[in-house]
Amino acid sequence: MTHAPSAGSPSRQRRRTRGSSALRALVRGGPLVPAAILLAVFLIVPIMWAFIGSFTNATLTGVTATQPEWVGTANYERLFADPDFSLSLWLTLVFTLASAVIGQNVLGFAIAYLMTRASRRIAAIVGGVVVLAWVLPEIVAAFIAYAFFSREGTLNQLLGLVGLTGDNWLFIAPMATVILANIWRGTAFSMLIYRAALSEVPPDLMEAAEIDGANGWQRLVRVTLPVLRGTIATNLMLVTLQTLSVFTLIYVMTAGGPGNASATLPVFAYQEAFRFGSIAYGTAIATVMLVIGAVFSLGYIAVLRRAEADR
């Protein structure tokens, strides 16, 4: 199934005069209206609001809550001078690279690849277990991860078995815990994508490589990976975008703390807007996130268009 607007969809276009065709396009587009209104009011307006609101001094409570004033670029000046923001940006980068680009992506591929070689029953069990962590409601997954890494939790129990005493990992290594938790929770997505893609690698390609004497590693690096280039690019984009917007997992596990030690951009924006009451400042952070998200989305669409053109 393609993820880009397909050019080859059945079309029932007949040429007629210009005026009537414009009218007909309008009538035919009619069913788009409910979706278009919902998208406009609840997605496009908030996005525009983000850009405009970030130039005001809107607050959660008080006079400026209802009558915000225009303050120009004050929020952005504050933002780029704010060490907490630079930290947050850095943490977001670390979180995304470590948990999505490296963790989920590599582990997801490894699991999918091993599945093609392991016994069918084990592959099915592993698939089920990995997917289970993914389909659980995010708050439940967050509780589980919280329990696992807390002082009395399972991790320290396991360390105790080999004679080590652990600490409260959520406090002493907050980033490591949320990264591991996100790998645990999100790997299933990459695994499913790669499993579907691997099942479409032509078997004769593998056989040919095998006949030429390529060993398992060579077949992986020289045949499988190049064939899956497009899938890898797609998956990287998707997991990056998903990970950029992870809020609940981090908020429940560490609330961005201790201090700001694990406050990635979504958590940071939430804290500034709703805990410290500066809606405008939170909105400026939201705008930065939107710009980052937009850049990745455009990159993703470009990759898809190229794949479409190659097809």
Partner: peptide, 12 residues
Amino acid sequence: CLPITAIMVPVY
């Protein structure tokens, strides 16, 4: 692709 969490403050 849009990160929905990014727009929760403006949505509010």
